[in-house]
Design a protein around this nucleic acid. Structure first.
Lengths: 249, 249
DNA sequence: CGGCTATTTGAGTCTAGTCAAAGCCTGTGG
DNA sequence: CCACAGGCTTTGACTAGACTCAAATAGCCG
């Protein structure tokens, strides 16, 4: 993995020069997340302090406890954020995709680790540099506060799931949320194409892979979902899924 | 809603006039949390837009789903923040005390409820008003971002506890954190005076009251703690408590 | 000294975890 | 094109940790 600053800087400058208006206008994440809050002019300034990077699948690009030098804005792909216990038990705290901002859960050191579960492209920002331009672009700081608030809401929702929901409710809740987050792909019915493995799912939901599997089997037998290969799951009864996932039965 | 600068200044002056240097200088939370980030002059301005309030024990002062009109800064006492499922299952997401800031977990509506577990005094801020003075006092906004980041770290830590720790580890972790948060009171040994009931503890730790009780009994039998009446718990072996609470054995 | 509530303890149950094996997909190479 | 190796997923049998229901005990307050 080549992250040395010189290379990144050269790459960034090249891209800006090559593209005139820059990489941003064509970026998948241009109109979501942090960047959506900025006008083209401001965005070009921000692009000037961004270093683009990529991570291969299954590679860790943030390690808990490391000095927190960067923020990341995901442009493409999916990553998992997690915390480990000394004996290897792991809790995935979230999945992030295009438009998502990473790095708020840190003071001087990262409080989480991040690993790509699909090839990831991101813009990296030096934390000190970014903080320095807050004065110039208060919209960025404002937006980050919004992002942090939203993360907090999502995390507390997740606490409710981990602390109080049954296995089936957890799985249903996850599918329900994912259904509303990702635009349902492929025509026939509503089919989700989940990028994560059963193991990731289990570590996110505070369960084991076997229990996740059994919960999906139960939802299948109830006619709520159909489980296909390749991480694809069809939602046959979205209304019922939502009721189960919100424990509103 | 009137938050033009003239009005704010006038109101501010009134408070200052009435109280001399004002309520802030004598406030228990003057040098912690949000207010600690401000100089006396700025603080007096902030005090001008604050409305003081009190809540009796066992009274709810924020209800999940209500329009989010205020932020709160706790000056005294302790409250629990929580989320409920439709059937009554409850997850407490945190306890807040003097110096803690409440209300970030909200967009247009509160994502949580809050109830006093001790008599509470707070300063209330109108969200719109507070946002309006961000431009004038960027330190406030900066500080709120720090607070939100810290909340996020704490919440993710809590997710790890809820998703992956055993009952005994959860209780030990809680006591360990509380030990480092609250200054150990009373001379003989290290004794915590917890303001919350077993029920609150259980709802915070994702357990039942019986399981919390049994976990405490286990820690007692191991010689780690001594459980006294009136919510007092003595820590006999802080090192061992910490090891168990971090699953580092 | 009661009455009330909070907490602890006990007995049995159940959900989810553990261990083990079978099935299924994917990708590779003959 | 098919056979096979490897990993991922599902299913099964059993166990264990936490929950439920129930009763006893201990504080708290009048």
């Amino acid at each position: 993995m080549s992250f040395d600053v010189a290379t990144l800087r050269r790459r960034s400058i090249n891209v800006l020069t090559e593209n005139g208006l820059g990489l941003c206008t064509r970026c998948e994440a241009r109109h979501i997340g942090l960047c959506d809050a900025l006008h083209d002019d401001d965005l070009h300034f921000l692009a000037g302090v961004a270093r683009q990077g990529t991570v291969e699948k299954n590679h860790v690009f943030v390690t808990e406890g490391d000095a927190a030098r960067s923020f990341f804005n995901i442009n493409h792909g999916t990553a998992k954020l997690y915390k480990d216990l000394p004996d290897g038990r792991r809790q995935i705290t979230g999945f992030v995709g295009a438009g998502d901002f990473i790095g708020l859960a840190a003071d001087t050191h990262y409080a989480f680790s991040a690993e790509a579960i699909e090839p990831v492209r991101f813009c990296r920002f030096d934390r000190v540099e970014l903080r320095a331009i807050f004065g110039r672009f208060p919209e960025i700081e404002r937006r980050l506060l919004e992002v942090a608030s939203h993360e907090l809401i999502v995390c507390q929702e997740h606490s409710l799931l981990l602390g109080r929901m049954t296995a089936i409710e957890r799985v249903a809740s996850f599918l329900d949320v994912w259904l509303h987050r990702a635009p349902p792909c492929q025509g026939s019915g509503i089919t989700l194409n989940l990028p994560m493995s059963r193991s990731d799912l289990a570590e996110y939901l505070g369960l084991t892979i076997e229990t996740v599997s059994r919960a999906l089997a139960s939802l299948r037998k109830q006619g709520v979902v159909a489980v296909a290969a390749d991480h694809r799951i069809s939602i046959l009864d979205p209304a019922r899924l939502s009721i189960i996932g919100q424990a509103a039965a």
